[in-house]
Simulated scan of single mutants.
Amino acid sequence: MSGMTIREGLLATIHGKEADRIPFQIRTSYLPHGEVERECRNKGMGINYALQCMHTFMPHVRVITSTTMTTKRREIKTTFETPVGKVSQIRREAKPFGGRFNGIGGHLIEYPVKKLEDWEVVKFMAEDTQYEPYYERFDYFKRLIGEEGVIFTFVGYHSPYTKLLIEWAGVPRLYIDHYRHPEKVEPVLEALARNQEKQFPIAANSPADIIKYGDHIDEGFISPSAFEKYILPIHNKFARMAHSKGKITAIHCDGRLNALKHLIGELEHDIIHAVTPPPVGNLPIKEALDLWENKIIWINYEYHFMGPKALKKHLLNLLRSIIPGYRVVIDASTERWVPPACLRMFANIMSKATLPLTERKLRRIERSV
């Protein structure tokens, strides 16, 4: 086992210091509890909790939900009634009693914005949203996690542009309306940006170890010009505020990043979170490390669908590509539940990845697992 505790090694890494091994983590909600959990955590796998640091509410919006369930799926309809009109969305949860364990999550099949008039409704929702600090749980979870890991919190879940893409409009509607009717869409983006700034001091003053500001960045949905105009300024504004409080900040970039890599380098966050190696992602981790010299790369290791044998080969090749192995954290998954057999192989390899990595060490690991 490591001379450092799990928490010490992770904090050393994210603060730009040297740990004695590559930190490897998993979010508690994606961890298969039981025998494999004990085995992997005894090998040094850390855990992280994601806690909200604020309550969010819309005092002048009535929210109504209804659920339709079958043996194959569950659909949740949410209606937002405002003084200027109403909108609704439908979220489908696949396999309600087993989807989480198959790595299948829910998704919106109907977005709130369906016609031009709906932009005025969501603008009202953006302006009406209010926040109150909610720090009470942090002390409890810090005692609970102890030296086993760290605690994240969030500024919202998406910044304004990605909120429209992922939560309120969807890709086709946003693109078409933004091009044809910018006078409808731009006021919503501006209202969201003004409103989200109210979250900044609440998050910056929270007791979390890391503050993450969204954002599910992917070049397939966010062009370089959109990133430069809508993502970069608001993220850097938050990062500066949080840094003035001595906090570590991150942005969630789990998609394809090659076309955005130089702009991502202009972000003032400390951590680029959930970077997914090829072939699911398209930016090699070694290239990201070379480009973003002052940043920590938190890797989303999204390859458990391969099965343990192929995972072993892929993970060892990834480790070879980043020798000597500094400035990275490897997460078993930032996105979904991990099958036990794959988690066991992941932990067996990562538990032996002491720093600095060398080819000789990796050959020894390869023979031992």
Rank of each mutant, 00 (worst) to 15 (best):
R143V: 02
I109H: 03
E75I: 08
I64W: 00
V63Q: 08
L108K: 06
S88F: 08
I151D: 01
T82N: 12
T153L: 04
S159R: 13
E117G: 13
R91S: 08
L116F: 02
R173L: 01
L174P: 00
D118A: 07
Y134I: 01
L144K: 15
A126C: 07
R92W: 03
F97N: 13
G105H: 14
E147G: 10
F57C: 02
R73M: 11
T82H: 08
R143C: 02
R137T: 09
K114E: 14
P112D: 03
G103S: 09
L174K: 10
E148C: 05
Y140Q: 12
R91A: 05
K77C: 07
S88A: 09
F97V: 09
K86D: 01
D128L: 10
G98L: 13
Y131H: 11
Q130R: 15
L174R: 06
R173Q: 13
P96K: 09
G85A: 06
T79N: 01
A169L: 10
Y131Q: 07
K86Q: 12
G103L: 09
V121K: 10
E81P: 00
G170R: 04
E147C: 10
E147S: 14
E167H: 14
S88M: 07
G146M: 10
F80D: 04
Y111E: 02
V121Y: 01
T71C: 07
E147I: 12
G170V: 14
Q130S: 03
T82Q: 10
L164Y: 07
V113W: 02
K86W: 08
I76K: 15
M125F: 03
G103I: 11
P59E: 08
Y175P: 00
T71V: 15
Y135C: 02
F152H: 15
I166E: 13
F141H: 12
L165Y: 03
V84C: 08
L164G: 02
E110G: 00
G99S: 08
H60S: 09
V122K: 05
H158S: 09
T79I: 14
V113N: 03
E81A: 05
Y131N: 09
M69I: 15
R74H: 02
I104E: 15
V171N: 04
I145C: 06
F101I: 13
D128P: 03
Y111V: 01
E120F: 01
F101V: 07
E167M: 10
P172L: 13
E75W: 09
K142T: 08
P112S: 12
H60A: 04
I109P: 01
V113S: 04
T68A: 05
K123F: 07
K115W: 01
V84E: 09
P59I: 05
Y175K: 15
P133M: 08
T78D: 02
T153S: 11
R92L: 12
P83A: 02
F154A: 06
H107P: 00
V122C: 03
H60I: 00
R62P: 00
G106K: 06
D128S: 06
R100F: 11
V150F: 15
D118P: 02
M58C: 06
K142C: 05
G146D: 04
P96H: 11
E127C: 09
T67C: 09
K123D: 01
